[in-house]
Nucleic acid binder design. Structure first.
Lengths: 209, 209
DNA sequence: CTTGAAGTTGACTAATTAGTCAACTATAGT
DNA sequence: ACTATAGTTGACTAATTAGTCAACTTCAAG
């Protein structure tokens, strides 16, 4: 009973967009309220604090935006290396799109948040780190599967996964810094090198290029 | 004439430390003043604004901290691939040290600043980006030299340099996020993979491991 | 030992910040 | 149609913020 409202969702969306664009500490509760078309009293009706909103906003973003992309790319029926390729491509496409629409390229919101100093509350950092961990585990699974399928020749799966994941996040962050999505274009090819992909796989890559 | 003072230097050092640790937007002028043992009036005697101090602090940090490490590692007389190895090792050592002394590992201050949203003034971002660019060019030079020396087998030097640099910055940022320097340990080995190092070089790596 | 420029200080403003609250309003379920 | 309940509002506080300023102190050079 009582009246209904989507103000809560609007606040989550606005909080996410602004934090993503300007960084956690540069965003004020007032700015989030204005962007959401909601008065501050209502903000605190729904959330205990700015940190509480941000924490929920991350989770909400992950469920609605990140997860669908990850699940499409990393589906078990997709060949292991192809999973990485699809993911890189999907992220590249999304970078290009936000740059076109917005003028600025915004990297991964979780990575941005996680990297910010202890100026961001522990609960928020933890939420961001958790989302990043889920992503990294998908990389690791794909690489492990690729090894089992004999597509790549590496000793330590864990170490290789760390490297591929570092390469990806590094390139993504640099694309944001340079405001240039092209930095991410040959991520898949570089990944094949990192994984010592067997010649057949590399040839496939070259042919399709 | 007039009295002498090192307050300016103290402010630069304090500004750098705090910004590095907490992030640009989480640091206040008051906090910098307190850390430097300087009153706010003096702050504005030396600097026009927080942005102006930060810009200078970056430059000062680069000259006194970053540059010596880079010049030692990337000296022209050092064999090309060895340069990268020395640099990775120097950064790893420095990460371990700050973690031990401080409890927290702090990645590259310029990378941190550059990645922050437009909440940071353009002049500051530009100073950070410029320092990063100088670093990346050293990577590129080393890789170009390695190719000329026949140590590696790659087609596109530019593209390979981008990848190695992305890998490095990604690993460094992730080390900070996880507060764990060990993420950076096999950076050199992974780099050799990225560069398709010729077998002799790889064997060298394995022997020394 | 004078002098004047460089350095210091603390009190000040004006704006912005997160967060509070009591009164108000709309409506879903009865 | 009634009413409890969820949602809304704008005015409020108290703290913090960047930045100002005129008076004061120190000391190197002449």
């Amino acid at each position: 009973m009582g009246r209904v409202s989507d103000a809560r969702e609007r606040l989550l969306v606005a909080g996410n967009q602004l934090t993503w664009k300007h960084g956690y500490n540069a965003v004020t509760v007032d700015a989030i309220c204005e962007a959401a078309g909601v008065k501050k009293g209502s903000f605190y009706h729904y959330f205990d604090s700015k940190a509480a909103l941000t924490k929920e906003a991350i989770e909400s973003w992950w469920q609605t935006k990140s997860r669908p992309i990850l699940e499409a790319a990393f589906a078990a029926e997709v060949p292991p290396l192809e999973r990485l390729r699809r993911y890189f491509d999907a992220i590249y496409q999304s970078q290009v799109r936000t740059k076109r629409e917005d003028g600025t390229l915004l990297g991964c919101p979780c990575f941005r948040l996680a990297i910010e100093g202890d100026g961001v509350e522990p609960e928020v950092r933890e939420a961001a780190r958790s989302a990043l961990g889920r992503k990294r585990r998908l990389f690791e699974q794909a690489i492990s599967d690729a090894k089992d399928a004999g597509l790549i020749d590496i000793g330590d799966v864990e170490s290789a996964a760390q490297a591929v994941y570092s390469l990806f996040e590094g390139a993504s962050a640099r694309a944001r810094i340079q405001n240039n999505p092209e930095i991410m274009t040959d991520l898949y090819e570089q990944t094949l090198r990192l994984l010592d992909a067997v010649p057949a796989e590399r040839a496939k890559q070259k042919r399709s290029a």
